[in-house]
């Protein structure tokens, strides 16, 4: 594997739906939503916090455990106050038994999401 792809075995993931994995880019949060897998930076863009300690909410949202702000997991878009800056996302390829996290490619939902890279409320 090259430095730009991180391989994670599904058996290493936490059963609660969010796991934190280390990478050359820093910590990454890996989410499982109804059998689909996503990855974003683990650090909240608002203040120092680990999103993998947060809660997954209805609407594919991750709620930060420190101030309750929310992001849309598939696209990284900041949704609820006080989050303003979107999350860096990573493309995830599901091979069956493992996940390949592409550190240099954003998730497809981010690329097609018109609100990315703007300061959305």
């Amino acid at each position: 594997m090259t430095q730009s792809v991180l391989e994670v075995g599904k058996s290493e993931l936490a059963p609660e739906g969010i796991s934190r994995v280390d990478s050359p880019e820093g910590f990454i949060a890996v989410y499982e939503l109804d059998g689909a897998y996503y990855a974003t930076q683990d650090g909240c863009t608002h203040a120092r916090a680990s999103l993998s300690e947060g809660e997954i909410l209805e609407g594919e949202l991750i709620e930060c455990p420190v101030h309750g702000g929310t992001f849309h997991i598939p696209s990284g878009r900041a949704v609820g106050f006080p989050c303003k800056t979107p999350l860096r996302t990573y493309e995830v390829v599901d091979t069956g038994r493992t996940l390949l996290i592409h550190l240099e490619r954003q998730a497809a939902a981010t690329a097609s999401d018109g609100e990315t890279n703007t300061n959305g409320a």
Partner: peptide
């Protein structure tokens, strides 16, 4: 946190 620990603050940097 609900156990009283300080988790963070606004402008934590």
């Amino acid at each position: 946190a609900i156990d009283g620990r300080l988790k963070g603050m606004h402008a934590s940097e």
